[in-house]
Design a protein around this nucleic acid. Structure first.
Lengths: 145, 145
DNA sequence: GTATATGTTTGTATTATACAAGTAAATGCC
DNA sequence: GGCATTTACTTGTATAATACAAACATATAC
């Protein structure tokens, strides 16, 4: 029993490292989904889901340095996908929110991504998809220290 | 039914992007597992599993440019984890194989990684771990174009 | 009202990467 | 059997993402 368990965990370790390599590649390559870079997609999605946010919070969310987020956000702002406004209660803080264009871009890309997943998981049963989603979510919880 | 399916796929898309971000971070951060960088770990593991390999094949395996692999392999060679030998049937080809030190390092890191997964998945049943491994493998197959 | 703390931006260095040019070896053709 | 072409790899160069540190702006505490 312990041995079975051992094998299963080894398999998860193996498959996860492989998955990360392939999925990241897919995002970078020609076959990349949609128009938004991975980092942009994630940032827009976060703002869409959780509402306006400031740099420090975004940096924590994505486990990146604030300076990195500062540049990313400026670049995305320059593209017009997000806009900056001052926190009325604290003049130091820049808050970012999705623009209409940004939301539009996000919706388009999200749709394309989800369609690609639909196609990839074509031959999976609904039950399998549900279980996979659930286990991924639990894995993600486990990944937070 | 279709709607359920839709939701499940959306969840998979969401959880996978999150998982990639977190898992990659974990590899980079202080909490990183073992001593080997992600790229080194993957390369050593590949040589261990599939035997000696040449640059071109490694580049294809990892979806990276040959020049990138050339530098990576040289760096890993300089550390003494892999060694280079000439293909006896083709003088242009450099083949790489694990050294004893490299194998040792790989085993240590693999053990640490698997232990971490064990700890993270502590409260999963064996059945859940098995299913997750299986679904990840199928996902990986689906990710190949 | 000054010292300190906080939020962000900017300067700089590092790393991973791709693409292009160069080098060495093999293959093909006459 | 020697030259042209192809193949495998290395090296030069550019770019992008990142972290860390310094600078700057605003807020808070005493």
């Amino acid at each position: 029993m312990q041995k079975e368990n051992q094998k299963a965990v080894e398999r998860i370790e193996y498959e996860l490292t492989t998955l990360i390599r392939r999925a990241v590649y897919l995002d970078i390559s020609d076959k990349k989904i949609g128009h938004l870079e991975r980092s942009v997609y994630l940032l827009l999605r976060h703002l869409d889901e959780f509402g306006p946010s400031r740099l420090k919070a975004l940096a924590e969310t994505f486990n990146l340095d604030i300076s990195t987020l500062s540049r990313q956000a400026s670049a995305i702002e320059a593209k017009g996908y997000i806009s900056r406004f001052s926190d009325p209660t604290d003049g130091r803080v820049s808050l970012f929110r999705l623009t209409d264009i940004g939301r539009e871009k996000l919706i388009i890309d999200k749709k394309m991504r989800i369609e690609r997943y639909h196609a990839m998981l074509d031959n999976w049963s609904n039950k399998e998809k549900e279980i996979f989603g659930e286990l991924l979510e639990r894995m993600n919880e486990a990944l937070i220290d």
